[in-house]
Design a protein around this nucleic acid. Structure first.
Length: 584
RNA sequence: GCCGCUGUAGCUCAGUUGGCUAGAGCGCCUGACUGUGGAUCAGGAGGUCACGGGUUCAAAUCCCGUCGGCGGUACCA
């Protein structure tokens, strides 16, 4: 934007929407509303009650803790809330708040806050927009809708099984046929058991990185380069990272680390940002790294997962991803777990109980799966609807037990012309520790979240959403301005009869009025000029029929003179005639 | 964050090795049609060629930078 020069008028705002946000027009709004209503019906049938919470929460409530720096972590929309008076007086420098990034964290807050009066277990559903400041991609926005259902306050596996049933019911009610979707279930505890067996330690890489990094602060570029390449004592922390990648990193770190932040030549904020980026190169927790590696299975394939479980993997765009650093035996154990199949639930259970061996958590995980299996079978939900699949882990760290994912199995053609299954439209799991943050007491909880926009996209693919057919109102055209009151009367007659109708309120001539009605996709236009008024008649034009007929008519005379799609009737028959057309 | 591609009318895009007043299709507006959506025909409006600098007699075109868009990848509570 150009700088306003002396005396020039202020620059005009450019109409636009912030990146990652969008406008939603009538057809999509209605499609979403219809879908949500259907799902809501299912949720209520299962006995859940609605809840609404604010879009803004305190940052610590959401689980994001502020770093030392004077701004919150990236990824969320956060700001400091300062009351007007306090800003000037400086008495109170405000509190960090943020837009919610999911509906689960606010729920755990509500439970902790009102636990004395809330029924236990607390069963609620909630829909609303959530906000994430990530890079938007195809079909991914910074503001999007989630539709959650959760049961808080019971460890009973029946609650988990029920979540699977709800998701299945909801999808079917929306018109997705049995076989076009599958609810997949796994259990984090089983994976924990496997990781125990291979003796996986916890976050040591983060510390190793710390050790490498700290002495480098403020050192010369040459020194930094040397350290990154040296055999001792740091090579262990960077095992498996290609030399050229390390060189590249060293270049950037030296640029950031020199001159040192306290010299005043480099803004400290930028320096901190740089540091954070390099943290991200390394797994903070090996277990988490394993989870993410497995989670990448559908994207990276088996070899990709192997790489990510091991030293790391250089992806197609030339970025090196640091791996979980497992040794080959451990890798194969994890892969074995992941690939233990999606056959009959009984078979998967057998397989898994064998894999976890003596691990206590592992066995517990398997018995939870058995419990879920029994509940599902009793309720009549077989393998055609709910499967056990150990490759489903979900990236979230907070899940503690069963995890779920609703997948659509039909193929879509993506932008590259490649056929692939539509994929996940909902996910969830058990999170027994979330309320503990507030109260210190264990409050077991389980639930799922439907990605509303994604599911809506899926419904469009299978043709369950008719966005094109949105019907506009009956438009009463205005031919004689002085007779406005009489036109108005027609409009209200129609409205009183329950017919959506409006008076043409624009400035346009008659031709434009019909064009307007056409654009609104109006089924009917009501026409009355002096001819009609003289005889107490009105002309009713069937716009939809007319549109159809126009396809066959070539000559203009035919089109204009014929007018088979309109009839002139007595004024008193207005409502009756309009309704006749609407119902046809 | 990182890597690559890209930016010309409301939309989709042409624009030769730098060279006249920057074009097309669609859409929009007006008229043919004095009371009729569509089709047809005729006419019209609409552009700081993303922005800023540089090279040149001359830049939409070449170079540098900034910003935006797209794709991949990472992160994803």
């Amino acid at each position: 934007m150009s700088q306003p020069s002396e005396g020039a008028p202020p620059p005009r705002p450019v109409p636009r929407v912030p990146k990652g946000f969008r406008d939603v027009f009538a057809a999509d709004v209605e499609a979403r509303r219809n879908m949500v209503e259907t799902i809501r019906g299912v949720y209520e049938r299962y006995g859940f009650e609605p809840l609404e919470t604010p879009a803004v929460e305190h940052v610590d409530v959401l689980g994001k803790f502020l770093p030392e720096a004077d701004r919150p972590d990236a990824g969320i929309f956060a700001w400091k809330l300062i009351e007007e008076g306090d800003r000037d007086s400086g008495k109170n420098d405000g509190e960090w708040v943020a837009l919610r990034y999911d509906l689960t964290a606010p729920l755990s807050r509500v439970v902790a806050q009102y636990k004395e009066t809330l029924p236990t277990p607390f069963r609620r559903y909630q829909i609303g927009p959530v906000y994430r400041m990530e890079k938007p991609g195809p079909g991914r926005f910074r503001e999007f809708y989630q539709f959650d259902i959760d049961t808080v306050g019971t460890a009973n596996m029946a609650a988990d099984a029920e979540v699977c049933c709800i998701l299945a019911d909801a999808l079917e009610e929306l018109g997705i046929k049995r076989g076009e979707y599958v609810i997949k279930v796994n259990n984090r505890k089983v994976l924990e058991g496997i990781l125990d067996r291979i003796g996986l330690g916890h976050a040591h890489h983060q510390e190793a990185f710390h050790e490498v990094f700290r002495p480098l602060l403020g050192q010369s570029k040459a020194n930094i380069m040397k350290t990154f390449r040296s055999e001792e004592p740091y090579s262990g922390a960077f095992k498996g990272v290609p030399t050229e990648v390390l060189d590249q990193q060293a270049q950037k770190i030296s640029a950031a680390a020199w001159p040192p932040p306290w010299s005043g030549e480099k803004p400290p904020g930028e320096y901190v940002e740089m540091l954070k980026n390099y943290y991200n190169l390394f797994p903070k927790d090996q277990r988490l790294a394993v989870l993410r590696a497995i989670d990448k299975f559908d994207k990276s394939g088996l070899d990709g997962v192997r790489g990510l479980l091991g030293t790391g993997r250089l992806d197609t765009s030339g970025v090196f991803n640091y791996g979980a650093q497992l040794d080959p035996d451990a890798i194969e154990t994890v892969i074995g777990f992941m690939m233990s199949g999606i056959a009959d639930r009984n078979i998967v259970i057998d397989h898994l109980s064998h894999l976890v061996g003596d691990s206590v958590v592992g066995k517990q995980g398997v018995s939870e799966l058995i419990a879920i299996h029994e509940f599902l079978s009793a309720a009549g939900y077989g393998n055609d609807r709910v499967q056990f699949d150990p490759s489903i882990v979900r990236g979230l760290a907070y899940y503690t037990g069963p995890v779920f994912e609703a997948q659509l199995t039909f193929d879509i053609i993506d932008e590259d012309g490649v056929k692939r299954p539509f994929g996940s439209v909902a996910g969830g799991g058990r999170y027994d520790d979330l309320v503990k943050r507030f109260t210190g007491e264990l409050v077991p909880a389980t639930g799922a979240s439907i990605g509303v926009d994604r599911l809506l996209a899926a419904l469009k693919v299978v043709g369950k959403v008719k966005t094109e057919d949105r019907r506009g109102p009956v438009v009463v055209t205005v031919m004689d301005k002085p007779k406005l009151a009489e036109y108005q009367q027609m409009v209200f007659e129609l409205r009183r009869a329950g017919v959506a109708a409006e008076l043409y309120l624009g400035e346009g001539g008659f031709k434009q009025q019909l064009k307007y009605a056409d654009r609104r996709n109006s089924p009917v236009a009501v026409i009355a000029g002096s001819n009609e008024f003289e005889k107490s008649e009105i002309t009713i034009k069937n716009l939809r029929l007319g549109k159809e007929l126009a396809k066959q008519v070539a000559s203009r005379d035919e089109w204009r003179k014929g007018q088979p799609a309109q009839t002139t009737v007595a004024r008193a028959a207005l409502v009756e005639e309009v309704k006749k057309i609407l119902n046809s």
